[in-house]
Simulated scan of single mutants.
Amino acid sequence: MGDVLEKFFVVVGLLVCLVYLLKCLRFTKYIFLHFWKVLPRSFLQSTGQWAVITGAGDGIGKAYSFELAKHGLNIVLISRTLEKLQVIAMEIERATGRRVKIIQADFTQSNIYEYIKENLKGLEIGVLVNNVGMLPNLLPSYFLNVSEEVQSLIHCNITSVVKMTQLILKQMESRRRGLILNISSGVGLFPWPLYSMYSASKAFVCVFSKALQAEYKEKGISIQVLTPYAISTPMTKHLNPNLITKTADDFVKESLNYVTTGEAHCGCLAHEILAGFLHLIPSWAFYSSAFQKFLLTWYSDYLKQNANIK
């Protein structure tokens, strides 16, 4: 009996060592790609002539629009505010010489997809960035204290990803090439108290993306989900950038280094390290009343001091 237990613990120990070795290799890969940009310009161009970006009027979506245009792709901007899209389109055309198409659509509504489909006809779409999203509460709040825009959040954060993927994946499948980047969030990696609706909606994006990648990777299509933490954008009230909080431009530039590395990542090295640290916290501590008090007090004060919250 003693020999059996000894062998059992040896096997368990080897498995634990293997798991941590794989984690070290993963971090080594991100460190390498953080400092040595190895994505060839031709990779993105080989997927197709056009990139479609939802939520392109601000923040991460706007940054992807400019960066993908710099990589030689024509751009389809989709967002709610026509004036913003027109300004961004002119800036991209002047800076890169690429063609830009505008589609005005409000992703909090469910009746927009036939209109989008008609406007995408005839375009060889190689890249789709499902970026559009809404955060009902930047400050941590209990579910019943959050605004009642539940259906709008579901349409914007969940329905948009499903419907836009459905529209464009068919074309990618027929050509057997394409790249879909789904922007989730670090708070979607596990349930976050006091951000319940946002966390749940972003968890859907994670699970949906990973399942689709398993279905379509052998058909030449890459479907990747990004799970960043703090990014300074209008949605986060322009949080002051620091070691953890990235600007949208910096985040997007770094995230494109990793588009060929797997189905899921945080998008930047700093957030990969943060995610690794957060996963060390035991669940009982993370879901305790003490942690919720920490969010409601210290973290709320930090947000108020570092964001444009009125």
Score class of each variant (00 low, 15 high):
1 M>R: 11
10 V>I: 11
13 G>M: 03
15 L>R: 12
16 V>M: 09
19 V>G: 13
19 V>E: 15
19 V>D: 15
21 L>Y: 15
25 L>K: 09
25 L>Y: 14
25 L>R: 12
26 R>K: 12
28 T>C: 13
29 K>Y: 10
31 I>C: 15
35 F>G: 00
36 W>A: 09
38 V>T: 14
44 L>M: 05
49 Q>F: 03
56 A>G: 06
61 G>V: 01
62 K>C: 04
66 F>L: 00
67 E>K: 03
72 G>K: 08
74 N>Y: 08
74 N>D: 14
76 V>E: 10
78 I>C: 13
79 S>E: 12
92 I>W: 06
93 E>R: 04
99 R>E: 15
101 K>R: 14
107 F>G: 09
107 F>A: 08
121 K>R: 13
122 G>I: 04
122 G>T: 07
126 G>W: 06
127 V>N: 10
129 V>P: 10
132 V>F: 13
135 L>I: 05
137 N>D: 12
138 L>A: 03
139 L>P: 02
142 Y>R: 12
143 F>T: 06
152 S>Y: 13
153 L>V: 04
154 I>E: 15
154 I>K: 13
157 N>W: 11
165 T>S: 15
165 T>Q: 11
169 L>R: 08
170 K>N: 13
170 K>C: 07
173 E>W: 07
173 E>P: 01
174 S>M: 03
175 R>D: 03
177 R>A: 14
178 G>V: 01
179 L>I: 04
182 N>I: 04
183 I>D: 13
184 S>L: 00
185 S>C: 01
186 G>S: 01
186 G>P: 00
186 G>E: 00
187 V>P: 01
189 L>Q: 06
190 F>V: 01
190 F>Y: 14
196 S>D: 10
198 Y>E: 01
207 V>H: 03
210 K>L: 02
216 Y>C: 06
216 Y>M: 05
220 G>W: 02
221 I>Y: 15
227 T>L: 04
228 P>Q: 07
229 Y>R: 02
229 Y>D: 05
230 A>K: 03
231 I>C: 09
233 T>L: 11
234 P>F: 04
243 L>Q: 08
244 I>C: 02
247 T>F: 05
247 T>L: 04
249 D>R: 03
250 D>V: 00
251 F>S: 01
251 F>V: 00
252 V>A: 00
256 L>K: 01
257 N>M: 02
260 T>N: 15
260 T>K: 15
263 E>I: 02
265 H>G: 02
265 H>V: 00
267 G>K: 00
272 E>N: 01
276 G>N: 10
280 L>D: 14
284 W>E: 09
285 A>T: 08
289 S>L: 10
290 A>V: 10
290 A>W: 13
291 F>W: 07
292 Q>E: 08
292 Q>K: 02
294 F>R: 05
298 W>C: 03
302 Y>W: 12
304 K>R: 14
305 Q>S: 12
306 N>R: 07
307 A>D: 06
309 I>A: 11
310 K>I: 06
